[in-house]
């Protein structure tokens, strides 16, 4: 039964050796290892988390970018349409302004032509009348040379006035 009775020397040395082993490892071995292993596990966890969030952010950013691009495209289209509209408007406006101006110029020209014509006519008339008067004067002078004729004219004029009244 030698196997079942612990030998004192062995117990003593086992205790001493194990105590030394434990003290050495507890001081310089395990804390460093446990800390590193824990820290590394944390680091890996954090890394995975970070990668996930980064991926999410990237996806979000991509979506956002797509949204911006879409919006920009829409805006571009709108701006282009607006520009087009504005262009036609401006052209239209310019055209109408030009035609109005032309009308105005034409009207002014017409007015001045009319004026000119009126003036010319007046002048012509004045001249014609003065010529006629001259001619008439000359004719009357020739016809009204005797008194008889003059009296006859006065009588006729008086008759006229009487009938009128």
């Amino acid at each position: 039964m030698e196997l079942f009775t612990p030998e004192f020397g062995l117990v003593f040395w086992m205790f001493v050796a194990f105590a030394i082993l434990f003290v050495v490892l507890a001081k310089w071995g395990w804390p460093a290892i446990m800390k590193s292993v824990d820290d590394r596990a944390d680091l890996i966890d954090k890394g995975v988390e970070y990668a996930q969030s980064a991926k999410e952010q990237l996806d979000n950013a991509r979506q956002e970018a797509q949204k911006y691009i879409d919006e920009a495209r829409k805006q571009q289209a709108e701006i282009l349409r607006e520009a087009d509209r504005m262009k036609t408007e401006i052209i239209e406006e310019a055209r109408s302004a030009a035609s109005k101006e032309a009308q105005k110029v034409m009207d002014a020209a017409k007015v001045s032509i009319e004026q000119e014509r009126k003036e010319a006519r007046q002048q012509f008339r004045d001249e014609v009348s003065s010529f006629a008067l001259d001619i008439a004067t000359k004719v009357v002078r020739g016809q009204m040379a005797d008194t008889k004729a003059q009296t006859k004219l006065v009588d006729s004029l008086l008759d006229e006035m009487e009938t009128n009244n």
């Binding site: 020397g9 062995l10 040395w13 086992m14 050796a17 310089w28 071995g29 395990w30």
Partner: peptide
């Protein structure tokens, strides 16, 4: 009897081996 018997010597060898293994890993870290 506190002799360094075969078993005591083997315990020392085992302790030294464990110490070397663990300390080398700790040093590596």
């Amino acid at each position: 009897d506190l002799s360094i018997t075969k078993n005591v010597c083997a315990i020392f060898i085992a302790c030294i081996l464990v110490m070397w293994m663990v300390l080398s890993v700790a040093a590596w870290y």
